[in-house]
Design a protein around this nucleic acid. Structure first.
Lengths: 155, 155
DNA sequence: ACATTTAGGATGATTTTAGTCCTATTTAGC
DNA sequence: GCTAAATAGGACTAAAATCATCCTAAATGT
């Protein structure tokens, strides 16, 4: 359907949450679940994928939890998504050469290639570190609704 | 899965086929099906969608068939896809304001917005007319495999 | 030992995907 | 008016994906 799944969305939320914690700090499934509004049992599966993909590390047992395997500056949005969804291909013809035998004479193939490249430019261009910063300024700018724009002077 | 469906792919193929015919010329399901390698009975459904979406017109009965409702210059790749797949939204948060209540403080939302914009730039930027031209030059350039490059001089 | 946490597998409801098939309707031509 | 040729449209289906839930096992700090 040309739309990321809940898996991808939830993975991004989880990684972003961890990126917002202090380096190496442990977060619980229940914490992440609540903060990011992801069903706890579902998130459990997502976290497993993220661990296996090498983006997140875990510690079992009491005082266990999850933390990022790498620095937030070194994890892109695309990586977080692909960690759980697998590699992105906008069309099957992009999976690998020969996957679609029409490649050689199909003019649409090149367009998909370009489209995917552009998409990746955006997704690769955002690191978790940047997203944390973006998130912080969003919170500052919009504490409620319709804030006065430019020099409040609200007195 | 962040991938267009067969519906979308087949729709593009069908519209592209019609765009390659003379203006107003009628094409049969069986012709399009064979040329574009789409199962005939499946294509039948696709064509219905394209007609209802207003991209293609049809004539029933003997000597009937399909033809483009508009000039190939006026049909974009995106239109062909959305005619059968419905509007594209890379993430549910882009469907409409309020669809995802995290919008206001979610830093990822803006990235999806940008990614979708870039994708649309590519998909909107290609008309069926252009694709027909692209297809023609692909056929000229690669008649077989590994053609000699630059000034054939093959005598 | 025990409480706390993640790991991993089994299960399931619902929707989507990718078709097929049959009948109805329309139309051209004889 | 009959008939052959086409599309229109609905019903049906198998398989896979989506979006979860639940239970047990294993690990670990106190």
């Amino acid at each position: 359907m040309l739309q990321i799944t809940r898996d991808g969305e939830y993975a991004v939320r989880a990684v972003l949450f961890l990126a917002g914690r202090a380096e190496g700090a442990l977060s619980l499934i229940s914490e992440i679940s609540e903060a990011q509004e992801v069903p706890k049992s579902y998130l459990s599966k997502i976290m497993q994928h993220l661990v296996r993909a090498g983006l997140v590390k875990s510690r079992r047992g009491a005082r266990g939890g999850f933390y990022l395997a790498r620095k937030p500056e070194e994890i892109t949005l695309r990586e977080a998504i692909e960690a759980v969804e697998g590699p992105i291909f906008l069309n099957v013809c992009l999976i690998k050469k020969g996957e679609c035998h029409r490649d050689e004479f199909c003019p649409v193939h090149q367009v998909w290639k370009e489209a995917q490249k552009r998409l990746f430019e955006v997704l690769d261009g955002k690191t978790m570190a940047q997203l944390v910063i973006d998130g912080e300024s969003l919170l500052k700018k919009k504490p409620k609704k319709k804030s006065a724009r430019k020099s409040p002077a609200s007195v």
